[in-house]
């Protein structure tokens, strides 16, 4: 294959890094996505785990808004 085209693993890593570099990106959320969903070998519970973490994050931020 053309060497200019990244491997699948490299692509996943590049996507995450590019999003992280964006100042508008919610860094905690991208951490959750990269830890659970946007990875080469996600767990079978990846979606449920990520959804719970997002919910907890919303709750935590809601408390901080007081």
């Amino acid at each position: 294959m053309d060497d200019g085209i990244p491997t699948t693993e490299q692509l996943v890593s590049d996507i995450i890094e590019e999003l992280r570099a964006d100042p508008d990106t919610d860094q905690v959320l991208i951490d959750i996505l990269s830890e659970h969903v946007v990875k080469m070998d996600p767990k079978s519970s990846a979606v449920a785990d990520a959804a719970t973490l997002i919910e907890n994050l919303a709750r935590q931020r809601g408390e901080q808004d007081l």
């Binding site: 692509l11 996507i15 999003l19 959320l29 919910e55 919303a58 931020r61 809601g62 808004d65």
Partner: peptide
């Protein structure tokens, strides 16, 4: 407050997911 934060996170999730989808489709 939780709903508002959850909604914000949902919108950010959609934005990040779209970026990721676009990158994958482009690849």
């Amino acid at each position: 407050r939780f709903d508002k934060e959850h909604q914000n996170l949902n919108e950010e999730l959609v934005r990040q997911a779209n970026s990721i989808e676009t990158a994958i489709v482009g690849h």
